[in-house]
Computed example of a mutant assay.
Amino acid sequence: MGFSQALSGLNSAATNLDVVGNNIANSQTVGFKGSSVQFADVYTGAMAGQGTRVAAVLQDFSNGTLEATGRNLDLGINGNGFFRFTQAGEVVYSRNGQLTLTADGYLQNAQGARLTGFPAGVGTGGQPVDLQVPAGAMNATATTGVEASFNLDATVDSIDRATVPFSTTDSDSYSYANTGTVYDSLGVQHTMTTYFTKTADNTWEVRVAVDGNEDAANTGELVFDNNGTLNEAGSTFPTYGFTPGGGAEPLNFSISFDGSTQFGNDFALDSLTQNGYAAGALVGITIDDDGTLIGNYANEKSQNLGVIALANFRNPEGLTSKGDNVWVETGASGQPLLGLAGAGQFGTLESGAVETSNVDLTRELVDLIVAQRNYQANTQTIKVQDEVLQAAVNLR
């Protein structure tokens, strides 16, 4: 009798209904990957087969659609790769990039799994660690270099230093002055004033004072050619030294005047930059499309805090689902290949977006109808077999 065939069909159809129902239930789950059932017939050499069985349930790891959320801690992978997390001492992988920042600075998902990456400055040569945003402020950095570019007026008269000694309080003792800002080792801001004095044709004396205190021991000299271009080889750019006080270390910095000119125009400052800054508290974080975690600070500076690690597998279908939208590696999947977003086979990261489920709801509804008809057909087979058996029993 064909009861065994029909029962195997019912069991397989029930599994198919479970898979389709699970796909439909997770059609709105971020990073979810739909599954499909593969069937195989059962044949033992008899004239008729013994029914069917579920050969495998395979997951479809094709990409879902990236959907903007506007939240900077939401991440989506545009291309291949998985986020790497640690959860309860186990390494797991996911396409769900909905992250939150914990009180102790870790990036984790809703289930408490922590996002991993490479420490700042290490790159893929390092061991992945749980990424953590430090709570402390960015330390202050003293100014060690200043880059300035000026136009010095070629038409002004020269000043004879032998008869007119330099004084910061005497405007007749220099030709032009300009102010800027420098920082000491404690991040305290100081006013830097640069004084230019034309001492001869195409030659300018340079002196620097910080908070009105001049470093008389170090005097620079700018030499220009006949076309008004700075002759760097013939010029001197000393290191200026000051004692800011207040417990800060002595302040020493050099000034580069690359790009300065001497034309018959008014004095003008073209650019002025320096490499020091005050301490600053963390005000926010951003994530670049290469996975770099950037800390933004109140002193308008940014700092690399690490880079997100992505993983890929030779056979993603060999991964085992652990629920909560995560998978673990198996022998069938192969070992994870770690790398950075946008490099090689890895996709880029999109901040402020998440990857939606790759379930096609319309197709799943059609598959649901087919699975339902399959189940009903197998029940009909049992019903017919029951009627045939009853007829045989009733023979007299």
Rank of each mutant, 00 (worst) to 15 (best):
Q5T: 14
S12L: 06
A13Q: 09
D18N: 15
V19A: 03
I24L: 15
Q28V: 10
T29I: 11
K33A: 04
S35P: 02
D41F: 05
T52D: 09
R53K: 15
R53N: 13
S62P: 07
N63K: 12
E67M: 13
A68W: 07
D74L: 05
D74G: 04
G76D: 09
I77V: 15
F82N: 03
R84W: 07
A88N: 15
Y93R: 08
S94F: 05
T100R: 14
T100F: 08
A103F: 10
G105T: 06
L107S: 00
A110L: 13
T116W: 03
V122D: 02
V122F: 02
G123I: 06
T124N: 10
T124G: 05
G125W: 06
V129F: 02
V129N: 03
V129W: 03
L131V: 03
V133Q: 03
V133N: 03
A140I: 03
A142G: 09
A142Y: 00
T144I: 08
V146G: 01
E147C: 02
A148H: 01
S149I: 00
S149D: 05
A154L: 12
T155D: 14
T155V: 11
V156Q: 14
R161D: 13
R161L: 15
P165M: 08
F166C: 07
S167D: 15
Y176E: 06
S185M: 05
G187R: 00
V188A: 15
H190S: 06
H190G: 01
M192W: 00
M192K: 01
Y195Q: 04
T197A: 05
K198M: 07
T199C: 08
N202G: 02
E205A: 10
R207E: 00
V208C: 01
D211T: 08
D215R: 02
A216I: 09
A216C: 09
D225A: 02
T236R: 08
T236K: 11
F237V: 03
T239W: 05
Y240L: 04
F242D: 00
E249K: 14
N252D: 13
N252F: 10
S254N: 13
S254V: 07
S256Q: 09
D258K: 11
G259I: 01
G259M: 00
T261E: 10
Y277S: 08
A278I: 02
V283I: 14
I287E: 02
D288K: 13
T292D: 09
T292I: 12
G295S: 04
N296D: 13
E300C: 04
E300R: 13
S302D: 14
Q303E: 15
Q303H: 11
L305K: 01
G306H: 00
A309M: 06
P316Q: 10
P316V: 09
G331Y: 11
G331H: 09
A332W: 09
G334A: 11
G334V: 05
L337V: 14
L340M: 13
G347W: 06
L349D: 01
A353G: 08
N358I: 06
R363K: 14
E364G: 04
L368W: 04
V370E: 11
A371N: 05
Q372A: 08
Q372T: 10
R373E: 08
N378Y: 07
K383S: 14
V388Y: 09
L389E: 11
Q390T: 10
Q390Y: 07
A391P: 03
L395A: 12
